[in-house]
Computed example of a mutant assay.
Amino acid sequence: MPVNLSIKNAPDDVVVKLKARAARNHRSLQGELMAIVTAAAEEPYATLSDVRESVRGLKLSSRSESTEIVRQMRDERMRALLDRR
Rank of each mutant, 00 (worst) to 15 (best):
Pro11Ala: 12
Val14Lys: 06
Val14Phe: 15
Val16Lys: 14
Val16Pro: 00
Lys17Glu: 11
Lys17Ser: 11
Leu18Ile: 02
Leu18Arg: 01
Leu18Pro: 00
Lys19Phe: 04
Lys19Leu: 12
Ala20Ser: 08
Arg21Asn: 10
Arg21Tyr: 12
Ala23Phe: 03
Ala23Asp: 03
Asn25Lys: 13
Asn25Leu: 13
His26Thr: 02
His26Leu: 03
Arg27Cys: 01
Leu29Asn: 08
Gln30Ala: 14
Gln30His: 13
Gln30Lys: 13
Gly31Lys: 05
Gly31Asn: 06
Gly31His: 08
Glu32Asn: 10
Glu32Asp: 10
Met34Cys: 07
Ala35Trp: 01
Ala35Val: 07
Ala35Met: 06
Ile36Glu: 03
Ile36Gly: 01
Ile36Phe: 06
Thr38Tyr: 06
Ala39Glu: 15
Ala39Val: 10
Ala40Tyr: 09
Ala40Asp: 08
Ala41Cys: 09
Glu42Cys: 08
Glu42Ile: 03
Glu42Pro: 00
Glu43Pro: 00
Pro44Cys: 02
Tyr45Phe: 07
Ala46Glu: 02
Ala46Asp: 01
Thr47Trp: 00
Leu48Gln: 09
Leu48Gly: 06
Leu48Lys: 05
Asp50Phe: 00
Asp50Val: 00
Arg52Met: 02
Arg52Ala: 02
Glu53Arg: 04
Ser54Leu: 03
Ser54Gln: 09
Val55Tyr: 01
Arg56Asn: 11
Arg56Gln: 13
Arg56Glu: 13
Leu58Asp: 04
Leu58Arg: 15
Lys59Val: 10
Lys59Arg: 15
Lys59His: 15
Leu60Lys: 02
Leu60Glu: 03
Ser62Gly: 13
Ser64Met: 08
Ser66Thr: 04
Thr67Gln: 14
Val70Met: 11
Val70Gly: 05
Val70Thr: 07
Arg71Asp: 05
Arg71Thr: 05
Gln72Cys: 02
Gln72Val: 06
Met73Asp: 03
Arg74Asn: 08
Asp75Glu: 15
Asp75Met: 10
Glu76Ser: 12
Arg77Pro: 00
Arg77Ile: 10
Met78Ala: 14
Arg79Phe: 12
Arg79Pro: 05
Ala80Tyr: 03
Leu81Met: 15
Leu81His: 12
Leu82Gln: 12
Leu82Ser: 09
Asp83Ser: 12
Arg85Cys: 10
